[in-house]
Design a binder for these strands. Sequence first.
DNA 1: TGGTTGATTTGCT
DNA 2: GCAAATCAACCAC
Length: 193
Amino acid sequence: MALPAAFYERDTVTVAKNLLGCLLVHCEETGTTAGRIVEVEAYLRGDPAAHSYRGETKRNSAMFGPAGHAYVYRIYGLHTCVNVVTETEGAGEAVLVRALEPVVGLDLMQARRGTDDPLSLASGPGKLAQALGITMDLNGTSLRDGPLQVRSPANPPELRPEDIVQTTRVGITKAADLPLRFYLKGNRYVSRR
DNA sequence: TGGTTGATTTGCT
DNA sequence: GCAAATCAACCAC
């Protein structure tokens, strides 16, 4: 089921850790695809690596919108990345979803990604967006009642603190030393170890 | 208004 | 290991 607004209206690191194990679901006419979130990164206020660092712009405006909505952006002209907006409206904080373990609609994901290897379907921010068919028109939409949703699994497995690895973020040049990346320990679908 | 830049992926050396 | 692909947004002039 969809998560309550209060889930997102907490400090971003807490939300990031609690998103691990949740499902990211995309429902559309073509079919439904979904995956379990196994890797995330937090982007905070005052964080030089965050898109919100220099204030609100046309591109990052969704990051300053209400918590529980999506911030979707395009990178390198060809890849799309998905964020979960957190904290309070105007904070400019979000969690980047970096990897999924494919759960629903594997055939559709394989067709979109052009590969059969389950380990390559969604093990990266650009890959998972492509696998789920996420496009820029989902930018700013609600993750609680829109076509793209975050849901709690039917039987949430118990997640202990020692099951989560905390380390530095991937692919950034600024604030590269901050330990704001989180992933499920030992999970084979994370983007890199 | 023009030059620069990525929260990436892929394929080739 | 490294470079290309590819473009909208951003920022300095």
